[in-house]
């Protein structure tokens, strides 16, 4: 099995300060990787740098596309990077408002990426959108409703549908469960786990919730002050944390 993403000595600076530094890991096809850590630990900076939304200051990120070609993101032309973002990647934001077009219907939201790839048959677009709304448990009858009339959980599920409709190979998620209450969050994670398993997409997810990591992630990176302090299999990290900060995180999970 080959990695689809390789990260070496990655660093992002904000002025004199490092947002994140010395990050090294590899991600394999179909793997779910969680990045956990407290607020300000550099999780979101790392994610944005990986997705090419922020320019890296040091190190490199290489991505292997569907044809097996490697692309180094910092030297990649913008046109090519946007093509990758459109065809091979997805990005799910914490606030649905940032990731959805609130002014247009759910159907148009799901179809947008397909249309960006050149699909021009209205009937087929609509059928595909309806199918995906069923898949994310929103229901095809809500196809023409704008996302502003959806609940928070539905909006997040719509974001998932909108991203997965083009069958990307890697999806970035920035605290997708952040604004959801516990029961909605559980349902969302269930759905996500099923879809990820079915589609074989690789996921890099940022979360501050170790419970989310336990449920979804194969591997976990723990970040503190911009550095990865511990990395490994999720179960290993949760059951036998080595770094004092990880031990603190694990011990602070509220036992249900």
């Amino acid at each position: 099995m080959k990695p689809i993403l390789q990260v070496k000595q990655l660093a992002k600076r904000y002025g004199d300060r490092y947002g994140c530094r010395d990050v090294n890991f590899e991600l394999y096809e179909g793997e779910v990787l969680c990045i956990v850590g407290e607020s300000g630990s550099g999780k979101s900076t790392l994610l944005a740098t990986l997705a090419g939304r922020l320019a890296a200051d040091e190190g490199e990120v290489t991505f292997r596309d569907a044809n097996g070609d490697w692309h180094e993101l910092s030297t990649l032309a913008e046109a090519e990077r946007r093509r990758l973002a459109r065809t091979e990647w997805g990005f799910v934001t914490q606030h649905a408002r940032d990731g959805l077009r609130m002014g247009v219907s759910a159907g148009a939201n799901v179809s947008e990426r397909l249309m960006a790839l050149g699909h021009r048959h209205y009937g087929q677009l609509r059928a595909t959108a309806a199918e995906w709304l069923e898949k994310v448990e929103i229901g095809a009858e809500r196809l023409d409703d704008p996302p502003s009339r959806f609940s928070g959980g539905m909006q997040q599920r719509l974001q998932i549908a909108r991203n997965l409709v083009t069958r990307p190979r890697l999806v970035f998620m920035d605290e997708p469960t952040g604004g959801l209450d516990v029961s909605v969050q559980a349902r969302f994670l269930d759905l996500l786990r099923r879809l990820v398993h079915e589609s074989g997409v690789a996921v890099i997810m940022v979360t501050h919730d170790l419970g989310v990591a336990r449920l979804l992630a194969h591997r976990t990176l723990v970040m503190q002050q911009g550095r990865v302090v511990e990395a490994g299999l999720t179960d290993q990290i949760l059951d036998d944390p080595q770094h004092p900060y990880t031990q603190l995180l694990v011990s602070s999970i509220v036992q249900a």
């Binding site: 046109a79 946007r82 077009r101 247009v104 159907g107 148009a108 947008e112 249309m115 960006a116 209205y122």
Partner: peptide, 22 residues
């Protein structure tokens, strides 16, 4: 401007899609 530069015009069809849907 970026959308024009990269010929990413799928967005325009979102409007036409909405027209037909409505």
């Amino acid at each position: 401007r970026k959308l024009h530069a990269h010929q990413e015009y799928g967005l325009m069809h979102v409007k036409l899609y909405e027209d037909i849907a409505r």
